[in-house]
Simulated scan of single mutants.
Amino acid sequence: MNDGEIYLRWANTDDAADLVVFNDAFNGVGLSIEEVQDNIAVTSELIALAVMDDLIVGFACAQYFKSFCYRGLQGEITELYITEAARGKGLGTLLISFLEEELSARGVTSVKVLTGNTNENAIKTYEKSRYSKMEKELLLQKKLEPIR
C-alpha cells in the first residue's frame, strides 16, 4: 500500500461490511453485517475510521458516560485496529486524537484505555499520545449467563 491520501471520518451503516472484517480480525467475534448495521444504528459509541486511498484501513471506538462518583464525563477508548499493510504510518495516533477531540467537545474530562500487558505496539501508540501506564490497575472480568 502506498502513502496516498489519508483522512478520518465517522462510521455509518454503509461501513458495516468493512467493520465486520476488521472486528473479526481484531476481536474474533464474528458478527454479521446485519448485526453491525443494527448496532451502529442504535449505539451512542463513537466509531472513527481511518481511510487511505479511499479504502478503510482501520477503526477506533470510544464511549463516554456520567458517573455519580466523579466530576465530569468519563471516556474510554475501547478499540483501536489498523490493518497490517497500513501500520507504521501514524494512523493509530491520528485516530486517538480524532476521538479525543470529539470526546472533549462533548465535555469528557478524562479518558482511559485498557490494552494487553504484552501489546507493546498499542502501548507505544498510546504513550505517544501521552497516555500513562497505571500500574495499580487490574482488570477483572466475568461472563454472565442471560437470565431467561
Score class of each variant (00 low, 15 high):
residue 31 L to I: 02
residue 31 L to R: 11
residue 31 L to E: 07
residue 32 S to T: 15
residue 32 S to I: 05
residue 32 S to R: 03
residue 33 I to V: 15
residue 34 E to G: 05
residue 34 E to Y: 02
residue 34 E to S: 14
residue 34 E to T: 14
residue 34 E to K: 11
residue 35 E to L: 08
residue 35 E to K: 13
residue 36 V to A: 02
residue 36 V to E: 02
residue 36 V to M: 13
residue 37 Q to D: 07
residue 37 Q to G: 02
residue 37 Q to Y: 03
residue 37 Q to T: 12
residue 37 Q to M: 10
residue 39 N to F: 11
residue 39 N to L: 14
residue 40 I to P: 05
residue 40 I to G: 07
residue 43 T to W: 06
residue 43 T to D: 05
residue 43 T to S: 14
residue 44 S to T: 09
residue 44 S to I: 00
residue 44 S to F: 05
residue 44 S to L: 08
residue 45 E to M: 13
residue 46 L to E: 01
residue 46 L to Q: 05
residue 46 L to N: 02
residue 46 L to F: 12
residue 48 A to I: 10
residue 48 A to K: 03
residue 48 A to E: 04
residue 48 A to R: 04
residue 48 A to T: 05
residue 49 L to R: 06
residue 49 L to A: 09
residue 51 V to S: 04
residue 52 M to D: 05
residue 52 M to H: 08
residue 53 D to I: 14
residue 53 D to S: 15
residue 53 D to H: 15
residue 53 D to F: 10
residue 53 D to Q: 15
residue 54 D to V: 09
residue 55 L to Q: 14
residue 56 I to V: 15
residue 56 I to N: 09
residue 57 V to F: 15
residue 57 V to R: 09
residue 57 V to S: 13
residue 57 V to W: 12
residue 57 V to P: 12
residue 57 V to M: 13
residue 58 G to Q: 12
residue 58 G to M: 14
residue 59 F to Y: 15
residue 60 A to V: 11
residue 60 A to H: 09
residue 60 A to G: 11
residue 60 A to T: 12
residue 62 A to D: 08
residue 62 A to I: 08
residue 62 A to L: 09
residue 63 Q to Y: 07
residue 63 Q to I: 15
residue 64 Y to V: 00
residue 64 Y to D: 07
residue 66 K to H: 13
residue 66 K to C: 07
residue 66 K to I: 10
residue 66 K to T: 09
residue 67 S to C: 03
residue 67 S to R: 07
residue 68 F to M: 08
residue 69 C to A: 14
residue 69 C to Q: 12
residue 69 C to N: 10
residue 70 Y to T: 13
residue 70 Y to Q: 08
residue 72 G to E: 02
residue 72 G to I: 07
residue 72 G to S: 01
residue 72 G to R: 00
residue 73 L to T: 00
residue 73 L to M: 03
residue 73 L to H: 04
residue 74 Q to H: 04
residue 75 G to H: 01
residue 75 G to P: 02
residue 76 E to I: 11
residue 77 I to Q: 05
residue 77 I to V: 15
residue 78 T to C: 06
residue 78 T to D: 00
residue 78 T to Y: 02
residue 79 E to S: 15
residue 79 E to F: 04
residue 80 L to A: 02
residue 80 L to V: 11
residue 80 L to E: 07
residue 80 L to I: 06
residue 81 Y to W: 13
residue 81 Y to N: 04
residue 82 I to G: 02
residue 82 I to D: 04
residue 82 I to E: 00
residue 83 T to F: 02
residue 83 T to N: 06
residue 84 E to N: 08
residue 84 E to Y: 05
residue 84 E to W: 03
residue 85 A to F: 06
residue 85 A to I: 07
residue 85 A to K: 14
residue 86 A to L: 08
residue 86 A to W: 06
residue 86 A to V: 13
residue 86 A to S: 13
residue 87 R to E: 03
residue 88 G to E: 00
residue 88 G to W: 11
residue 89 K to P: 00
residue 89 K to Q: 12
residue 90 G to Q: 01
residue 90 G to C: 01
residue 90 G to T: 00
residue 90 G to S: 01
residue 90 G to D: 01
residue 90 G to Y: 02
residue 91 L to A: 01
residue 91 L to C: 01
residue 91 L to R: 00
residue 91 L to D: 00
